[in-house]
């Protein structure tokens, strides 16, 4: 049975994360609980050092919490072996990074094909899907360009297409407009809005007030805790 809108796509329960630093323990997260429903657009905002990125990394299974648990589509990440966790990231989660992190040696379309290839999708099918996604983000005509030949905004669009490749349950974006100029950032807002309107669940960390304003819900973090949440 396919997931329905309104179901919980992502759940964090009492997440804590402690780091040892210079002989002392830094409490990056101090008990964060969060639920993201399917189709929701959640922005997480807060000052630097408030634990936003750490939260996103734990939600994405990129790091292990010191305490608490994360469930993606009802699957608890704790205790999953590396292979299963990697597979879950590949198929259920999409990542968009501030610095795009495309592979410079690949073309735009090859970057989008990468997760499809890893998922075992046939060559013809992944090429068609990658082209469709590049068309969706408005870059079909740049498909054959190397990542290094694209502008910042174009690279971020390719990264979004890559994140959408395996039809993930949730897209996790870490400062997606952080490296873009104002005009390009605005076009990114529109793309995120369209993504959400088309049913994509979004969790976005941002300092960008405009981007946060687009979200259906804004979660404010401060000192490793959720300070306040607002329904958009």
């Amino acid at each position: 049975m396919s997931p329905q809108p309104g179901e919980i796509a992502l759940r964090a329960i009492e997440l804590r994360k402690d780091y040892p630093m210079n002989g002392e323990t830094v409490h990056a997260l101090r008990g964060v609980s969060l639920e993201v429903r399917r189709g929701e657009y959640v922005a997480i905002v807060g000052p630097s050092g408030s634990g936003k990125s750490t939260l996103l990394q734990l939600l994405g299974g990129l790091d292990e919490p010191s305490a608490g648990s994360v469930l993606v589509d009802g699957v608890a990440l704790a205790g999953l072996d590396d292979r299963t966790l990697t597979r879950l990231r590949l198929t259920r989660l999409g990542f968009v990074f501030q610095r795009f992190h495309l592979l410079p040696v690949l073309t735009a379309i090859e970057n989008v094909e990468l997760p499809l290839s890893e998922a075992g999708v046939s060559r013809a099918e992944r090429r068609a899907r990658a082209l469709e996604l590049l068309g969706y983000v408005g870059l079909a005509e740049r498909a054959a360009h190397r990542a290094t030949q694209l502008s910042g905004g174009e690279m971020q669009r390719v990264a979004i297409a890559r994140a959408l490749a395996n039809r993930p349950a949730v897209i996790l974006a870490d400062e997606p407009t952080g490296e873009l100029d104002a005009a390009t950032g605005r076009s990114m807002l529109e793309l995120f809005r369209r993504l959400n309107q088309d049913g994509t669940t979004l969790v976005v960390i941002t300092h960008d007030e405009h981007l946060a304003a687009e979200a259906g819900r804004v979660v404010h973090m401060l000192d490793g805790r959720i300070a306040v949440g607002r329904q958009g």
Binding site: R87, L88, T91, F97, H101, L103
Partner: peptide, 16 residues
């Protein structure tokens, strides 16, 4: 290493 971490983040396996 940054690229490799990105690949791992988006679901590329250790084996790959």
């Amino acid at each position: 290493l940054g690229e490799i971490a990105t690949l791992r983040a988006i679901g590329v396996s250790r084996a790959t």
